[in-house]
Computed example of a mutant assay.
Amino acid sequence: MKGTEWYQADDIAEAYDDKRFSEGGQFIDRREKTAVLNALGPVEDKRLLEVACGTGRFSVMLAQEGADIIGLDISEAMLSQGREKAQATGVADTLEFMVGDAARLPFPDDHFDAVFAMRFFHLADRPVTFLRELKRVSKGQVFFDTFNLESTRLIYNWLLPMGSRLYSRRDVESLLADAGLELVDEQHDFVLPYGFYRELPKNVAEPFRKLDRALGETDVGDAVASVSYWNTTAADGDND
């Protein structure tokens, strides 16, 4: 895993949300949460697993929607932030945070109704191994996102402290085939990369986001989008 020391530092965890999801970053937060909710559908009483849950943005949201959820991450500092959020929002009873390795998930086969991982595969040095583990513990659905090779992210990718693995569509198709997953649905967004929005005040970022959404509704926008959301399920017969 790239940059694990940076990711697990206490000061990084404490500032993580404010740095990425305040001001213009609010548009990123809103879009990502919408993508997760749209993919997972009604989650009340569902048993869910979020791998690489970080500070619990998605886990807390889904617990508030009625899910019984576990958030797993390699960083205890990140999980501490998540536990504080769970306590503050009153969902600690239905949300558990635990330290764990995505390559060896501590759960039996078919344990969860759905499993998802956001902002994880750009850091994964063994993506097929991780994807197989997500599939193993899910009854069917696996949802994840990727940062894309044919996108504006190439412009600044090398500057990022943790690095970033970028995927072509062919890469994703190969991953799914090797993991025994079938694509159910896909969405593509953010012609302008995440880093652009995070650097802008919200009122300045808003017109750029409107333009970005308009471009994203075209074939060209999909082709050069910097982020893709992949909703998948076990291939026929794989989880029988």
Rank of each mutant, 00 (worst) to 15 (best):
A117I: 03
F143S: 06
V191Y: 05
R126K: 12
R119K: 09
P161V: 11
F120Y: 14
K139L: 08
L160I: 11
L192E: 09
F144N: 01
V172Q: 05
D189M: 12
R209W: 13
D178E: 15
L134A: 11
L149F: 13
S174W: 04
L183S: 08
I155D: 10
T152C: 14
A177G: 08
L149I: 05
A179T: 02
F196Q: 05
K135P: 00
A177E: 15
D189L: 08
L166Y: 01
R209E: 15
L181R: 01
Y194W: 13
F147A: 13
D145A: 09
D125K: 10
L200N: 01
Y194S: 14
R119A: 13
A124H: 00
L166K: 00
P207D: 11
Q141N: 10
D185P: 03
V115M: 06
R165M: 08
F147G: 07
W158P: 00
R165S: 12
E199W: 08
F143N: 12
G163N: 08
D171V: 02
V115H: 02
G195P: 01
P127H: 02
P193Q: 10
R209L: 12
D178K: 13
P193W: 02
I155P: 00
L149E: 10
L160G: 04
V137K: 08
K135F: 00
R170I: 13
F121I: 11
P127V: 05
K135R: 15
A117Q: 00
H188D: 09
K139W: 01
P193M: 02
L192S: 07
V204T: 13
D145W: 01
L192A: 12
R136A: 08
P207G: 04
A117T: 03
L159F: 03
V204Q: 10
P127S: 06
D185Y: 10
F144G: 01
T152S: 15
L159V: 05
V172E: 10
E199N: 13
V204S: 03
V204G: 00
T152H: 14
M118E: 09
T146V: 15
S174F: 04
A117R: 07
P127Y: 03
Y167I: 07
K202W: 11
F147V: 14
V184M: 12
Y167E: 09
A177L: 11
S168D: 07
E182Y: 02
L175H: 07
L192F: 14
R136E: 07
R132P: 00
N203K: 13
F120H: 05
R170A: 15
Y156C: 03
S174M: 10
L181S: 03
V172W: 06
E206W: 08
P127Q: 04
K202H: 13
R136H: 02
F130K: 02
T146K: 02
F143R: 03
E133K: 10
N157M: 11
R169M: 11
V191T: 10
F130T: 13
I155Y: 05
D145V: 09
R198L: 11
A114H: 08
T146Y: 14
K202N: 04
L123W: 07
P201C: 05
D185M: 04
A124I: 01
E133F: 00
M118L: 12
K139D: 02
V137C: 11
F143Q: 01
F147N: 12
M118H: 05
L176G: 05
R169T: 11
F121P: 03
Y167Q: 01
S138R: 08
L159G: 01
